[in-house]
Design a protein around this nucleic acid. Sequence first.
DNA 1: ATACAGTTGGG
DNA 2: CCAACTGTA
Length: 476
Amino acid sequence: MPSTAIVWLRRDLRLHDHPPLHAALAAHDHVVVAFVLDPAILTGRFASGPRTAFMLDALRELRDAVRERGGVLAIRHGRPEEELPRLAAELGAEAVYWASDATPYAMARDRGVREALAAADPPVGAVPGPGNFVADVGVPRTRGGRPFAVFTPFFRVWGTLDRRAVHRAPQAIPRPPGGITAGTIPSPADLGLADDLVGERAVEPGETAARAALQRWLDGPLPDYADQHDHVAAGSSALSPYLRFGCLSPRELEERAARRGGAGAEAFVRQLAWRDFYAHVLLHHPGDARHEHQERMRQLAWEDDAEGLRAWREGRTGFPLVDAGMRQLRASGWMHNRARLVVGSFLTKDLGIDWREGEAWFMRWLLDGDVASNNGNWQWIASVGVDPAPAFRRILNPTLQQQRHDPDGEYVRRWVPELRGVPDELLAEPWRMSDAQEDAAGCRVGRDYPAPIVDHKEERQRALARYRDVPAAASS
DNA sequence: ATACAGTTGGG
DNA sequence: CCAACTGTA
């Protein structure tokens, strides 16, 4: 009696190095690849037009890739705990395979699916497996047996964890005989997202584009990554949207970077470890998704500053690097990581606005918007999360950061065109231009480009006071 | 003299 | 990480 399995895709939209797909093909005669368009994707707390559109494009390509291998990608619309048992019954499938995730939503959803499959008649097996992280993020523990809350010791242990083999893409994905309703992949317009997209996506969706970008990265800039990664005009891999949707396997990335060796590859693998670290943290502290990891910091007095928030979102704070980053995000769905730190410090320290406002805005626009990494990084720059450091070490001076990380102004001039004529020496502090310099630059501060909305030096002092004045944690 | 490299203190 | 301070040229 031939057996059939379902491979349920979620954030792992690829055929290369896909452990659940590999395992299902090894154990069953027929495999159906499935994707469930969960309403939570479209209406949940972190719904995002640009990200949903990216995902739909990746799915379309994947459907064709599965088809070329003789298989079928079944698209279903609805809640996974209802759609998967129904699909299993339709196919007579014995088991559903998937790659585990770490967010509270995914954990609860997957538990519901497991229970619904077990309760089906006949019961359907649930086979969660690896695939979304380099290593098993549920495993590492400190000597004291606790989950890690500091990156460096996590990284040491992470480096010693078992690594699974990297799998090739399957040559064939045999589908069961008989008809299967493939289902339709909607267009962004079908979902009412047409007005909620970015103009020029930072990267092209899909596994083919992802693998080409990876190859270019490995053959090109990777060796210089250790020195260059903070250069906002270039420097980083920009592979993050592919990791977000699993168009690339993080484990394969590690393997292929490590094979090149050198300081650049090492620094790049370290960044992959940060991604695993934040998944590890959220897995063990699901409450972090909504509130500060540091209990004491839950009493921080955030400012209510609608005008400041608007200026930040729109990239008109008067600090060129901040504005360049925010405009890059809005225009392309991506922002260089160094710029993320600078705009994050500016929102939470200079403006004193709640980091959750920044987290939500990033989740709305980032193609790589990932709950664990985004939340972890926002808490990090807001000095309220894991990997603790005193606030004064994470108040970034936007002017110094620009001079250091965009010294020739390439990034700022690209994203803040009204500053293009400003000479390098003044580009980080355009408000210091004389009238004559403004005329020469063709840019008058206060008219063509905003005057700074705050005094950084003053806000730095106010931020230090805000953090200093948080009451000590109540003793129990 | 001011400009800069290096050091230090900050919760 | 930043800013203030120190010593040096």
